[in-house]
């Protein structure tokens, strides 16, 4: 089937198998390997990307379902060589160890902050419940999101 998508600002048109998962389309067809696969059942969130601004688990969405959509992956988050405040926050606060869950975690946090720019600690923890991390115990991830919220509030971006 023929699909058209815009990924990180670039338009793509591809012929895909109807059963091709969006995550495999991004990784294998477009070579955007920053989006990871952790469970294949939308439970871990490693494959989270933004589809029309919403955080979506790309391992349980077919590429054909994303036809016509605008997609942002981790590769598209920094602009003009400048890290997004969330990326800065994860770096500053040691919000990652192995880094495998990080792209999905950052994009889930992106949606969280777009809906609630000043979340409490409890709201951050609740907002990230769809994304699993086995390394950090989440505390530095919470700090990273707080850092980004603060940065946005003070006009960091």
């Amino acid at each position: 089937m023929r699909i058209q998508v815009k990924v990180n600002g670039t338009a793509f048109e591809s012929d895909v198998e109807p059963r091709l998962l969006l995550v495999h389309y991004l990784r294998d067809v477009l070579d955007l390997t920053g989006t990871h696969i952790g469970c294949e059942t939308s439970l871990c969130g490693a494959c989270t990307v933004l589809v029309n601004g919403h955080a979506v688990k790309s391992c349980t969405l077919l590429a054909v379902q994303a036809n016509g959509a605008e997609i942002t992956t981790i590769e598209g988050l920094a602009s003009d060589g400048k890290l997004h405040p969330l990326q800065q926050g994860f770096w500053e606060e040691h919000g990652l160890q192995c880094g495998f869950c990080t792209p999905g975690m950052i994009l889930a946090a992106h949606q969280l902050l777009s809906r609630n720019p000043h979340p409490t600690e409890a709201e951050i923890r609740k907002g990230l419940e769809g994304n699993l991390c086995r390394c950090t115990g989440y505390q530095h991830i919470v700090k990273a999101v707080q850092y980004a919220a603060e940065k946005a509030a003070t006009g960091g971006q």
């Binding site: 070579d31 990871h36 770096w91 040691h94 990080t102």
Partner: peptide, 21 residues
């Protein structure tokens, strides 16, 4: 001290084994 590992990992530029073609 902030990690040297992080800039590539927070931008999706690290390479895990499944990223290899």
């Amino acid at each position: 001290i902030k990690r040297k590992e992080d800039p590539r990992l927070i931008q999706g530029r690290g390479h895990y084994v499944d990223d290899l073609k």
